[in-house]
Amino acid sequence: MKEDYKIERVKERINYIEDVLASVAAGDIDARINSEVEDDLSGIEAAIDLLIDDLTDELKQRKKMQKEVEEKLAKIQEQQKTIFQQQSDLLELSSPVSKVWDNVLILPVIGTLDSQRTQIMMENLLEKIVETGCTISILDITGVPTVDTQVANHLLKTVTAARLLGTECIISGISPAIAQTIVHLGIDLSSINTKATLQDAMIYAMKQNQLSENVKLHSLFADSDENEE
């Protein structure tokens, strides 16, 4: 009888261990066996409690780390937003068109020309051409490190659009390395007026100005001559 009772007792305790393990598995990390008896089985029970402790610590640590990661992620997303914002601001800022002389506009291009930027650049330039009535614009590409077919295509389109508005477009600042590369690529830029430096382009623009000035004076005198007769 005594043996039977002992076996019953052990069975109960094992069942209880199972219950505790089940509740831990279900997420109740505070569940423990906390055996009050001292015998062969209590060693196992204590060991299981220890394991649950370790697991709980791990879980807590993981939750903490997860929270940190989430916080960092939110921060990064916030920063990314700022970067996008600044990028679009930069796009606006990076295509300044300024009138530098009678009739002469300058558009310095620095960095890379992607389709979005070219679009903004072209819009700015065309608007300014209409606004100022300038007949010469200089596109300075000294600050463009790589001219591939897409960039060349964009430049060609910009020049063509400016020409449609009656403005002559000069491209300046083509480095020797870029000149060679363009030739090897097989791009034909001969339809565009190009100059090596911004200075050359300015001199050319002023000469053109002088010419048109002379033509104006000439027609003015021609008019007054007619009047005298």
Binding site: P145, T146, D148, S175, A177, T181, H184, L185
Partner: peptide
Amino acid sequence: IIDQTRVTTAVSE
């Protein structure tokens, strides 16, 4: 510099 530009442009394409 010329070879740098060439290879960079080729890769860009």
